[in-house]
């Protein structure tokens, strides 16, 4: 009981000063990362930044040279002692190609310490019931990925590591997986670490984000904190654009006003400093200017990512 309480207060994943080299090439360089219980932690980085190596080290598939790495209080080489409390879903769907979907899921049930779902249930959950009798090698990449996720959900893992989970999925598949991640997180408190190049998807689902660059975590925080202090832009659709521009230019907390459209119907875009959209709306309406639209735009993850890794 005491150990359970201790574990509950610890991060699900704790990485400190992790070094990993392939020969003389350093891939991970003093990497630090904590994943809190109940978080959906995204890991983003350029190709070759070390995302997959990090995932593989976390899951005990790769030895590392130095540093400390604990998953649910255990060294990665002892993850198996948790009897399925950690699962990994890899970039390449890791299933026996000669088995059918149903057989692969029966096999998962066989190796799962505490199965909580039947193969039929996870097939329904992932929308692959009609492929039940197909061999894994006959499936499309997207359906293999769905089967791989279904394979992981035979049990009730506390921590799921997903490497590029959206690769090969169609738009509907991406929506299903995003919804499933949110559902498992909300209903069962499942913690996720997921890597992807699809920054928009990560922005949609993640509570925390880490940016990995050249083997180091450059930034890791709650999504809200990542954008804190970064200036938001407000788009206002209105009439009497000339008057509105003058009025807004005189308002404290508004700067960098740009305008598109004519005087009767224009879009004014501006940067706000310690001022919310409601104040702008009130000022315009009181001046007799009709406002037909207001939209706040915070910096995107893509923009943040490019700012940090210095790419375009």
């Amino acid at each position: 009981m005491a150990r359970d309480e201790t574990l509950a207060s610890q991060p699900v994943l704790s990485i400190a000063a992790l070094d990993k080299r392939y020969g003389k090439t350093a891939v991970l360089n003093q990497l630090h990362l904590n994943v809190e219980r109940g978080a959906i932690h995204g890991l983003v980085g350029l190709n070759g930044s070390g995302k997959t190596t990090t995932m593989e080290c976390v899951l005990g598939m790769q030895p590392f040279q130095s540093g400390k790495l604990q998953v649910l209080g255990r060294h990665p080489s002892r993850l198996w002692q948790g009897r399925g409390d950690v699962v990994g879903i890899f970039d390449a769907p890791s299933l026996h190609p000669a088995l059918t979907v149903r057989q692969a899921l029966e096999h998962a049930r066989l190796v799962c310490g505490h199965p909580v779902r039947t193969p039929a249930e996870v097939e329904d959950l992932l929308g692959i019931a009609r492929y039940s009798n197909y061999k894994i090698r006959q499936l499309s990449l997207g359906n293999r990925r769905r089967t791989s996720i279904a394979h992981a959900l035979i049990g009730q893992p506390e921590f799921i590591v997903l490497d590029e989970p959206f690769n090969g999925l169609d738009a509907g598949g991406v929506d299903d997986v995003l919804a499933l991640i949110k559902k498992l997180n909300h209903e069962h408190g499942t913690t996720f670490l997921l890597s992807s190049h699809q920054l928009a998807y990560l922005e949609n689902v993640c509570t925390h984000l880490a940016i990995l660059h050249r083997g180091r975590i450059e930034l890791s925080d709650h999504v809200d904190n990542l954008f804190h202090g970064r200036q938001a832009r407000l788009d206002v659709s209105c009439d009497q654009a000339n008057r509105a521009s003058v009025l807004l230019a005189e308002m404290p907390g508004v700067s960098d006003i740009t305008r598109t459209g004519d005087n009767d119907h224009a879009m004014l875009s501006m940067t706000l400093h310690a001022l919310d959209a409601a104040a702008v709306n009130t000022a315009l309406v009181l001046a007799g200017i009709s406002v037909s639209g207001l939209e706040m735009r915070r910096p995107s993850l893509t923009q943040l990512f490019h700012d940090i890794v210095g790419t375009h």
Binding site: R83, V87, H96, V111, G113, H151
Partner: peptide
């Protein structure tokens, strides 16, 4: 073969030592 397909990873993570 299992290493190539990745199939042994599930066993090693969930239930079995190398």
């Amino acid at each position: 073969g299992d290493r190539d397909s990745g199939a042994l990873r599930h066993l090693l993570i969930r239930r079995v030592s190398r």
